[in-house]
């Protein structure tokens, strides 16, 4: 439960972090809140030779309106997302989910950007940003690029973020009063979800794909994943209950001490139905 030895550098700016990443390659990792990376390091499952601490880059901690979107700085702590009045008004799904991440200590340290960059399929916020159809902004030596959340999560704890890039911002659309739901199923209050569901009602034809809801799942695949079976069923006119039956279509959920794949599929169906009902779909 003690990490292997590593070098520690503190970056004074995002550019300095990028320069350090470029210089040190794959063996360097960014340290933000440390609540995903450090546990892996203590188990010696992760052994980066260098940690680049970006935790004090205050200019990457913000929540602001930007046109029809809300922009959230990558270093915004879960607690700040949880208590943001702006988000409560514009994208209430996000603070509701952030308020269920871990426990108060974790929420005061962990950051939204760290959670997305870690790409853990069991984390809550990646699925939320997926359901919202959000965008992830990253910066590297070649400048800035925006990646749709749907294209960001590539594999188990693998993302489209390159080794020399820093995740700087998350952008999500303003919900404008649309119905939403976040269903998190776990055994203890502070655990990862056994299965979780984030759902946003989009209204027929109003969403980017013309579907009736954006639905994404926590811990149902090797990545945070959209429940495309549900979304397609809704787009074809299915009721919430009918659509929910497709929650696990095409998915190969994990097996662990809390749930078999079969139980996860069942939970996904129950929770998606509850989410759609709560979102008013």
């Amino acid at each position: 439960m003690i990490t292997a030895s590593f070098e520690y550098r503190r970056a004074g700016s995002a550019d300095e972090a990028i320069a350090l990443l470029t210089e040190n390659g794959d063996d360097a990792k960014l340290l933000a809140g440390g609540h995903s990376l450090l546990p892996l390091m203590k188990l010696r499952l992760a052994r980066p030779s260098m940690l680049i601490d970006i935790g004090r880059l205050a200019d990457l901690s913000y929540i602001r309106v930007d046109g029809d979107q809300i922009a959230i700085g990558a270093l915004t702590r879960h607690h700040d997302v949880e208590v943001s009045e702006l988000l409560a008004r514009e994208v209430p799904l996000l603070p509701a989910a952030a308020g269920q991440v871990g426990d108060p200590q974790i929420r005061h340290r962990g950051t939204i950007g760290g959670s997305l960059a870690h790409g853990d399929p069991a984390s809550d916020l990646p699925a939320v940003v997926l359901a919202l159809g959000g965008t992830i902004v990253v910066r590297g030596p070649g400048g800035e690029r925006s990646i749709p959340a749907a294209e960001f999560f590539n594999g188990f704890m693998e993302t489209a973020l390159a080794a020399d890039e820093v995740l700087t911002e998350i952008r999500v659309p303003r919900l404008e009063g649309a119905g939403w739901s976040f269903q998190k199923f776990n055994r203890r209050a502070h655990d990862w979800a056994i299965v979780g569901v984030a759902a946003v009602k989009t209204g027929a034809g109003s969403g980017s794909n013309g579907e009736g809801a954006g639905v994404a799942l926590v811990n149902m695949s090797s990545t945070p994943v959209r429940a495309t079976g549900v979304e397609e069923a809704l787009a074809s006119g299915a009721s919430a209950a009918e659509a929910a039956a497709h929650a696990a279509d095409g998915l190969d959920p994990p097996s662990d001490i809390n749930a078999s794949p079969e139980f996860r599929r069942h939970l996904a169906q129950v929770l998606v139905r509850r989410a759609l009902e709560e979102a008013g779909v």
Binding site: P39, D103, R187, A189, D191, I257
Partner: peptide, 15 residues
């Protein structure tokens, strides 16, 4: 299998 407090579920006050 339950060799950490992530897998061995000691409840907290919230539970």
């Amino acid at each position: 299998i339950t060799s950490s407090l992530a897998d061995y579920l000691v409840p907290s006050a919230a539970d």
